[in-house]
Every structure is written in C-alpha cells, then in structure tokens.
C-alpha cells in the first residue's frame, strides 16, 4: 500500500533530492542555475520540510526550511505529490520576487530531471545519456530507501532488522552511494562511503538499469555474478526489501 506522506518524503528527498546530482552530471542543467544564489523551501503540511539551496551552478538539499529565500507551502502531502506528478501548483509564502526562477529556470530543471528519470527508449540508446540517467536513478533510489526505511511501516520493519553500519551500493567503478544505518535510522550518502559493512555492486550501467527497470531479477543476477554482494549480507538483504518498496512509491 502507498502512503501519501511516505511518498511526499520520497518525492522531496529522493526525486527533488537528485537535483544536486543532475547539476553535477548535466551542463545544460548547470546553465539554468549559473550565477543564481537562492534557496527554495518546500513546506508540506503534516509532511516533509526541505530546502533546495542553489549556489552558482551547484545545489544541496537540506532538511527544514529555515532561512530559505522562497518558501512554497503545500496544504497536504497529496498536494505536494500532485505537483511532483505535474498536476498541481504550490502556494508561495515568501520570496515573491524570485517567482520568475520558480516558473522559469526551476521548472526547466525539473523537466530535465523528469527526462532523465522517465527516459524515452530513444534517449536511452545514447550511451552518455544512459549513464547519466542510471546514475541519477541510483541517487533517487538512495534517497527513497532512506525515507521509506524511516517512514513507511513495512520499510521501518525492514530497517529494524538492519544492523548499524553502511551498505555500499555501486555501479562498477563508476559510481557508488551508501545507506547508513544507525540504530535502525537510515541516511542516504550520495558519495562512495569511506567504509562499509556490506556491499552490493552492479557490474555495469546496463545491469543497474535492468534491475531498476524490473527487467532483471536480483537473485538471478547474483547467481551470474552481474550483481555482487559481500560483507554483512543481512544488511543488503534488508535494504533490498526496502528497495522493493521503492518501486511501490516511485514506479
């Protein structure tokens, strides 16, 4: 079952949380925010609060909305999720003089993000796009795993079985993220963790893509060596159970 509040957390810290990595990967995206220093706060009633802070072609996602230059208010998680789905409009509470960015640059940025996260088969045929798209999906998934593990009832059960330490999830030598567990609270690490208690590594971008798109079964892939697991495998096992929930929320 899909819970609107959990979906809102996934959308804010998973989907919009990928914008900083979109800027790292895509020159056109960077151009849209070059020279801009402002922060966009998302305040969702009975849901997540977060701020996307831009600074000259870079961005970071922070928890809370304190000090943001534009604050967008959403009366419910459902309203926020509708916006992410392209079906709603936010209510700006402050920072009206930045409304041009909201309607212009930021909208183009989210359109670009959508193009990567819901790519056409033609776009995916290009190797560089395929890699950027798959890398961004990994970041979205990392964020969503943490939110589902912390907020979804079934996800919380899985997290309750994860021992403390970091799971490294990598794609070949190209990219890696981490999921850190501390007393069953999960945090997404959007860079290769310095140390890990366990790891799951996809041998190629194509393998990662096939798994994310549901065309490849993880158990079969472990058998063929396309996916490698090592270390405290119970961690990987439980993170994978949460990963199954990601598709419930973000498919």
């Amino acid at each position: 079952m899909k819970d609107e509040k959990v979906l809102a957390y996934c959308n804010l810290f998973g989907v919009l949380g990928a914008i900083p990595y979109l800027l790292e990967l895509d020159e056109a995206a960077r151009e849209l925010v070059r020279g801009k220093t402002l922060s966009l706060g998302f305040a969702v009633k009975d849901g997540p609060h977060g701020t996307l802070a831009f600074s000259d072609g870079r961005a970071e996602m922070r928890r809370g909305t304190k000090g943001c230059s534009i604050k967008l208010y959403f009366p419910s998680c459902k309203a926020f999720n509708a916006l992410i789905d392209g079906k709603g409009m936010p209510i700006p509470l402050s920072g009206f003089w930045h409304i041009g960015f909201l309607l212009g640059g930021f909208t183009k940025l989210t359109d670009l993000l959508s193009a990567y996260l819901r790519p056409s088969p033609e776009a995916l045929a290009e190797k560089a796009f395929h890699e950027r798209s798959t890398t961004l999906m990994l970041h979205v998934i990392a964020g969503a795993i943490a939110e589902i593990g912390n907020h979804d009832p079934v996800g919380r059960f899985s997290a309750s079985n994860i021992v403390d330490g970091t799971v490294r999830i990598g794609i070949g030598d190209a990219v890696a993220i981490g999921i850190r567990a501390e007393e069953h609270h999960l945090t997404a690490l959007h860079e290769p963790p310095a140390e890990s208690l366990s790891e799951m590594c996809f041998n190629s971008m194509q393998t990662a893509r096939d798994l994310f798109d549901g065309r490849l079964n993880a158990l079969a892939a472990v058998g063929t060596g396309r996916v490698r697991v090592a270390g405290m495998i119970s961690q990987v096992d439980n993170v994978n159970r949460i990963l199954d929930r990601v598709s419930v929320y973000l498919a």
């Binding site: 079964n217 993880a218 158990l219 079969a220 472990v222 058998g223 063929t224 060596g225 490698r228 697991v229 090592a230 495998i233």
Partner: peptide, 23 residues
C-alpha cells in the same frame, strides 16, 4: 535461468545460499 525462476531458488541457490564470491 531460462527455465526456472532465479535458476536455483531458495537456500540451495547462490543468492540465498550466500555464495560469496559466486565463482
């Protein structure tokens, strides 16, 4: 793998059996 889900299912398979490394 072409005929049986996950090739060998359950604990006698390489994934649930924790065959690390599988080779």
């Amino acid at each position: 793998l072409k005929l049986i889900p996950s090739g060998i299912y359950g604990h006698q398979g390489p994934a649930e059996g924790c065959y690390v490394p599988v080779e």
